[in-house]
Design a protein around this nucleic acid. Structure first.
Lengths: 341, 341
DNA sequence: GTGAAAGCGCTAACAA
DNA sequence: TTGTTAGCGCTTTCAC
């Protein structure tokens, strides 16, 4: 029914091979034949069959992206960065929303051995390092965004958790706070751990004793943050500031504070991480650490595409992007400030 | 290098056809052979080659989704609905973020004739009806979410713009408002038009004269909403309430009000549309119309998959889902209300 | 610079 | 119930 490459070839009076060369702009075709073929292609409204091309060339020009929840702004922005770079390099992006279900992530990884994708980008905290190595060991191309992994061969893109966490906590200390709580994500997440490290470094540098009872984990989501905040306040150990390992959990902290009549920032200063779009609309606007989400997505997509095309010879496969502390009203109480940031 | 179906066949002592049958669980295989083959597949860690399968079967089990911006919560939630249904039916989803660029949307539509996708879901206000018909006329399967199109053959999923807009405006009238402004999206969008229709119906039903000068368009985004709001207030024609055709523009309205010292809801009641996640965190929380975004995505994906598998015989291809007015503080000023909704 | 021919890995029609 | 066989539509040697 549809036109194939032989039909175009016949009409143009050339061989299928030549049409193929034109299509993939090989340098070995005369300008004249090329023009002719292009014209026939246009006339016949010919479209190459993707699957045939993929089967023959053994590449799909498709990248998969696994995220826990596309609805969370942090992941959506990363995907956007990936998509834009992919589009510029004529790659497609298959989106794999794991719905926070590890089984679903494992199944989606299967796209690699099925050769439905040429590479996979993981933006998920769930998959164990070993599950990832299973694939990289077989030569599959995998990139990781926003989390650390103990394997220097895998390209990974992240920010400096320790560094920005220390800055965030030192900002709170600079505001006069001494009782500062820390809320992490999953207990076993390397990100959580590194952010805690930064927190402790700041405390230590200012000779503030570290209180384990002022620490809790909120699973990186709103509900978890809410519940962790309730546990923290239940303890009756006073604290005047809290450093929360991501903005989603900070939403839960806001909710808990509202319910308990704790005023932000008068009674409690709050600093989050991610600079989700939502944070600047909160009341008060939330201080947070900008994560260059779009840039991380775009960079990782570019690196993987370069690797697949053998344009990537760099030894260093770990890319650390700078992140910036954004101070808003949630951590800085001033009467003279405008109503919103 | 990798195992193919013949390798499995050989090892299992059967023909490739039988292995294929097992893989696609055809009913014509003995339990015994099936078990045997499955075991060999497991042993050899065999994974079928997606492109070969696609080429032979002429289906990709992949759906494309075109959205203007995956970062906008409205679109992200729809995608999530599509992705979940697709996953349940063993389909993949290719995400096409057009970045609000019509050229990019046109190019992504090319995935259809390239047979890189079996169907395409459009969630974009940009593409002209004719551009869509170009593809449907050639037999390509296309579904549309959240906008109207003048062609009953194309499956489309939407909410009843006229109905919910009328409800929203009548809510404002019920609060005692008479000078009510309307902010639409693109001037030529059918959604904008239908929401205006609902607005006018409500006004007419309550014998409130319709003032064209209390209408403007804000292009469905925050900046557009901000600018449209400035134009409206510049006119010096008083209004005490505004019905805004989506939440993104309402963010712009909030910003303009803040700058001009207009208090919400005391000086101006605001109602938006979409119930983006962000709205309930605004100060004051924004009244809005819930759009069942996830449900629309899931429903459309299901319908298209049914159509592709000939399980869909229904004549009616327009699905209208109910939407619900959510009243929060931005349109209802009460001293006794809790700080946030 | 161009063409002929082989084959990528699978499925489906037909035969057994 | 199972096997044989012929392609799906393209790219890519290898000749010319």
């Amino acid at each position: 029914l549809d036109n194939k490459i032989v039909d175009v070839a016949r009409r143009a009076g050339v061989s299928p091979a030549t049409v193929s060369r034109v299509l993939n702009d090989s340098s070995l075709v005369t300008e004249k034949t090329k023009r002719k073929v292009l014209q026939i292609i246009e006339e016949m409204d010919y479209h190459p069959h993707a699957a045939a091309k993929q089967l023959r060339s053994q590449r799909t020009r498709t990248i998969g992206v696994i995220v826990p929840d596309i609805n969370v702004a942090y992941f959506a922005e990363i995907i956007k960065g990936i998509e834009n770079m992919a589009y510029a390099r004529k790659y497609k992006v298959i989106i794999c929303d794991s719905d926070n279900k590890p089984e679903k992530e494992k199944e989606y990884l299967g796209l690699l051995p099925n050769r439905a994708v040429d590479a996979m980008i993981l933006v998920t905290p769930y998959l164990a390092d070993e599950s990832i190595f299973e694939y990289t060991d077989k030569g599959h191309i995998v990139g990781i965004i926003g989390r650390s992994v103990h394997n220097s061969a895998i390209p990974i893109c992240k920010t400096d958790n320790v560094k920005f966490s220390r800055l965030a906590v030192e900002h709170l200390i600079g505001q006069g706070h001494r009782q500062i709580a820390y809320m992490g994500g999953y207990a076993d997440s390397l990100d959580s751990y590194e952010r805690l490290e930064g927190y402790m470094a700041a405390m230590k540098a200012h000779q503030i004793p570290f209180l384990p009872s002022l620490m809790d984990n909120g699973d990186f989501d709103e509900t978890g943050g809410y519940e962790a905040m309730l546990r923290l306040t239940d303890k009756q150990i006073p604290f005047t500031a809290i450093y929360v390992a991501n903005d989603e959990m900070a939403l839960g902290v806001y909710k808990a504070c509202k319910e308990q009549g704790i005023r932000i920032p008068e009674d409690l200063a709050v600093v989050g991480v991610d600079n989700n779009r939502i944070t600047k609309y909160l009341s008060p606007p939330l201080s947070t650490v900008e994560q260059p989400k779009y840039a991380m997505g775009a960079l990782m997509a570019e690196k993987l595409i370069d690797i697949m095309n053998d344009n990537e010879f760099s030894v260093n496969r770990e890319f650390t992007i700078d992140s910036e502390l954004i101070i808003r009203d949630s951590s800085e109480y001033r009467r003279d400030r405008e109503p919103n940031g």
